[in-house]
Write a protein that binds this DNA or RNA. Structure first.
Length: 256
DNA sequence: TCATCCCTGTGG
DNA sequence: CCACAGGGATGA
């Protein structure tokens, strides 16, 4: 579910609620997360809540609590309602709680001393590195964009959306892009991410993604999930292929 | 660079 | 019943 815009939205909403607050206790409702609850000495105040790629970092006074939502995870702010289904972990604060909800249980929560994941530059930041980096890879551009070691934050939706906006066929080798196409791609990545941030992310038909306070995201994909539907620009039916094991949507007319 | 796996839910 | 799902680690 969550890519950069959804993760960033989650952090922006939760930050003012937890910043400076004392994390009192962790309660693992999923046995797999019991070790985390044991590893973390509490209470500890939250000194920062930040995002790195798609990772969420609770910067506590002594340790780092690192959350990755993977496919179906979300964080919710909870005050008094009943605990929802699929809640895996409860972070208890004096005035409420953060819930880690994850039906498929693919998400991760770890206690670390320092963030050590191998991530490329953030997709929201300066993308001038793409010029050189793309030259070195023969992978399909869409597969390259999904590899977090190359660029951090894009997922299956926004990689497809950015390539559509840039007019680039997702099957093209990364190294085959002209300087002009790389420029278009850089602009397209930023445009798509800023649009999605303004919309607070994307909630698809399955409705699994919600912000921490329960709102749906309003971003409407141009190609993602629209197989057979007319391209919003030229009317050609959107195609779905498989690339790197993931469903890939594109307009065969607009993307060359 | 690929297939496979993790795990569960939903929809055709 | 099978196909598919927003992500990523792993081993061949």
């Amino acid at each position: 579910m969550p890519e950069l815009p959804e993760v960033e939205t989650t952090v922006r909403i939760l930050r003012p609620k937890v910043l400076g607050m004392n994390l009192l206790a962790l309660q693992a409702l999923d046995p797999a997360l019991a070790p985390v609850a044991k590893l973390l000495p509490l209470p500890q105040p939250v000194q920062g809540l930040t995002r790195r790629g798609k990772y969420i970092l609770f910067q506590l006074s002594e340790k780092l609590l690192v959350v990755h939502l993977r496919m179906s995870g979300r964080l919710a702010w909870h005050e008094k309602e009943p605990i929802p289904d699929h809640t895996r972990l409860i972070l208890a604060f004096p005035h409420g709680a953060v819930l880690f909800i994850d039906p498929r249980r693919l998400g991760t929560v770890e206690v670390q001393d320092g963030f050590s994941e191998e991530l490329g530059p953030d997709a929201l930041g300066d993308l001038s590195f793409l010029e050189e980096a793309l030259k070195e890879s023969r992978a399909p551009i869409k597969v390259w964009l999904l590899d977090q070691r190359n660029i951090a934050g894009l997922g299956n939706i926004y990689a497809a959306e950015a390539l559509f906006l840039a007019g680039i066929d997702p099957r093209r080798r990364a190294s085959s892009l002209s300087p002009q196409e790389v420029s278009k791609l850089k602009a397209a990545i930023h445009q798509v991410l800023h649009e999605a941030l303004a919309a607070m992310g994307t909630t698809l038909f399955d409705k699994t993604y919600r912000t921490p306070v329960g709102e749906a995201g309003d971003y409407e994909p141009r190609v993602y999930g629209r197989e057979g539907l007319p391209c919003k620009v030229c009317g050609t039916p959107i195609e779905r292929i498989e690339l790197g094991g993931r469903g890939t949507y594109f307009c065969p007319h607009c993307q060359k």
